[in-house]
C-alpha cells in the first residue's frame, strides 16, 4: 500500500507563487533594516543638533564628542583594557552561574521531595535583589575581578535554575514511558528526553540572564574596582566628564545588543525542531 504524502510537505522545486511569497518576505525584512538605520541616524542627528542649541553639552554631551572619545579609547588601548575585563567577568560569571543553575535545576526536577522541602527557602533567596549581595561579595572576595564574577554568577544562577526546574517538570510523561519501554536507562532518558525537552526553557533563561550578568558585573565595578567599563563610568561621573559617561554607556548598549543577537541565533539553531 503506497501513499504519496510528499506533496503535503513540498519536497519538489518551489513554484512561482512560493518564490513570490518568499521574495515578499525578504523585501519586508530589508525595509525593516533600512528603517532601523534611518531611525538611528535621525536620533543621532537630533542629538548633535540639540546639544549646545537646546541643552548644555555639559549634561548631554554630543555624538561627535562621544564618538571622538570612543575613537581615542580605541586607539590608545583603553577600550580594550576596560572592556576585556568587564566581558571576562561577565562570561565567567555567566558560565559558573548557568552551569550550577542547570545542574541544580535538573537535580530538583528529578527529586520532587527535595524540591518541595527547599521551596520556601529558594523563594526567599530569589526575592533578594541580587545586587544587594554585591557589598557582601566585595567583603568576601575583595575588590578584584572575583567579586564581579560572584555578582553576575549569583544573578544568572537563579534565572537558569528556575527555568531548568520548570523545564524538567514540564516534560511530557509519554516521552519518558515510551523511551523507557524502548530500553532507555535513567541516563538515557535524561540525555535524550529530559535535557532536550528542557532546552527551550533553559535557553529562555539564558537569554534573559545574559544582560543581567552584564549588569551584575558593571554594578560590581561601580562599587569598587580599578578597571572595567563600570569603573570608567563611575570615575567619569566623579569628574563630571559626561563625554566619557556616555561613551561607557554606549559601549554597554552595543555589547548587550551583540550578545543578545548571538544568543538569538543560538536559540534558533537549538530549537530548529520546533514548529
Amino acid at each position: 500500500m503506497q501513499v504519496d504524502e510528499s506533496a503535503a510537505v513540498g519536497t519538489g522545486a518551489p513554484s512561482r507563487a512560493v518564490r513570490d511569497f518568499e521574495a515578499g518576505l525578504v523585501r519586508r525584512k530589508v525595509m525593516v533594516y533600512v528603517c532601523q538605520a534611518v531611525f538611528g541616524i535621525v536620533f543621532l542627528a537630533f542629538w548633535q543638533w540639540a546639544s549646545g542649541r537646546l541643552i548644555d553639552p555639559f549634561f548631554v554631551s554630543s555624538p561627535s564628542a562621544v564618538f571622538g572619545k570612543l575613537y581615542t579609547w580605541l586607539m590608545n588601548g583603553e577600550l580594550y583594557r576596560h572592556l576585556s575585563i568587564t566581558l571576562y567577568a561577565t562570561a565567567i560569571g555567566f558560565i559558573i552561574g548557568s552551569t550550577i543553575g542547570f545542574a541544580m535545576g535538573l537535580l530538583f526536577g528529578k527529586f520532587a521531595f527535595l524540591a518541595e522541602v527547599l521551596d520556601p527557602y529558594i523563594t526567599a533567596l530569589y526575592s533578594i535583589p541580587k545586587l544587594a549581595l554585591a557589598p557582601l561579595f566585595i567583603i568576601w572576595f575583595g575588590i578584584g575581578i572575583e567579586s564581579k564574577i560572584a555578582v553576575s554568577a549569583s544573578i544568572v544562577f537563579f534565572v537558569v535554575f528556575l527555568n531548568t526546574f520548570s523545564g524538567v517538570r514540564e516534560v511530557n510523561p509519554i516521552y519518558i514511558h515510551a523511551t523507557q519501554i524502548m530500553g532507555a536507562s535513567q541516563w538515557g532518558v535524561m540525555r535524550t528526553v529530559i535535557i532536550p525537552s528542557a532546552t527551550a526553557w533553559v535557553i529562555t533563561g539564558l537569554k534573559v540572564s545574559v544582560p543581567y550578568a552584564l549588569v551584575g558585573t558593571v554594578i560590581g565595578e561601580f562599587m569598587s574596582s580599578n578597571r572595567g567599563i563600570g569603573f570608567i563610568i563611575a570615575q567619569a561621573t566623579g569628574l563630571f566628564d559626561t563625554n566619557s559617561v556616555f561613551a561607557g554607556i554606549i559601549i554597554l548598549a552595543v555589547v548587550g545588543a551583540i550578545i543578545n543577537s548571538i544568543l538569538k541565533a543560538t536559540e534558533g539553531w537549538l530549537l530548529r525542531w520546533r514548529a
Binding site: Y175, A178, I181, G183, T192, S197, W273
Partner: peptide, 19 residues
C-alpha cells in the same frame, strides 16, 4: 517493572520532536 520486551504505541505523538 517497565517491560522492555514489548513495543508500545499510543494515540499520542510519542516521536521525539527534537530528533
Amino acid at each position: 517493572a517497565i517491560n522492555r520486551h514489548v513495543g508500545y504505541l499510543t494515540q499520542a505523538d510519542s516521536v521525539l520532536p527534537w530528533r
